[in-house]
């Protein structure tokens, strides 16, 4: 079985065998939840074993007291296998492994994620703000940052 021909059912089995702490949902588009320490290994596995070479996006969700969750989406453009992978970092944790060594597309996506959520991606070659200016205070997509919070320069 080459990595170009993995179907959703095969992928489900492969993920279950390789990542014991993970859960898999969905039939055609899979949603996989992994532990934070499996974040980078899973990306490598998805690219090399499942043939998901297309990097769609990376972002995060703020679940308030439960902490942050990182989300990434990768596709296999030959079999149309789509994988949305998620990982809860845990309350108060703002560090995560960078996916740049695996997917070059993660570079700008992680910069945006750092900009908006303040997540520090360890191993990112150039982690700085991308959409907001360098002296911006706060990370706007956190739920604690309300729309009308008076942060400079709009104070």
């Amino acid at each position: 079985m080459s990595s170009g021909t993995v179907t959703a059912d095969q992928a489900r089995t492969l993920i279950g065998e390789r990542f014991s702490g993970s859960t898999v949902e969905g039939t055609t588009a899979l949603t996989v939840t992994v532990t934070p320490d499996a974040w980078l290994p899973f990306a490598t596995f998805a690219k090399e074993t499942l043939g998901c070479r297309f990097f769609s996006f990376l972002s995060a969700n703020d679940w308030k007291d439960e902490g942050l969750e990182v989300v990434a989406k990768v596709d296999n453009t030959d079999t149309n296998l789509a994988i949305l992978v998620k990982s809860r970092l845990g309350a108060g944790v703002t560090t995560c492994a960078s996916l740049v060594p695996v997917y070059r597309g993660a570079n700008w996506m992680e910069r945006e994620c750092y900009d908006m959520f303040g997540i520090r991606f360890e191993g990112h070659p150039d982690l700085r703000r991308i959409l907001l200016q360098d002296d911006w205070v706060g990370h706007p997509l956190l739920k604690s940052y309300s729309v009308d919070t008076p942060y400079p320069p709009y104070r």
């Binding site: 070479r53 453009t77 997917y103 070059r104």
Partner: peptide, 21 residues
């Protein structure tokens, strides 16, 4: 093709690089 998929470019750019997606 390899760079195109890795960065996640899509649409006419991706198809211009040989991926029928």
């Amino acid at each position: 093709r390899e760079l195109a998929e890795d960065v996640g470019i899509s649409g006419p750019l991706l198809r211009g690089s040989g991926v029928a997606y």
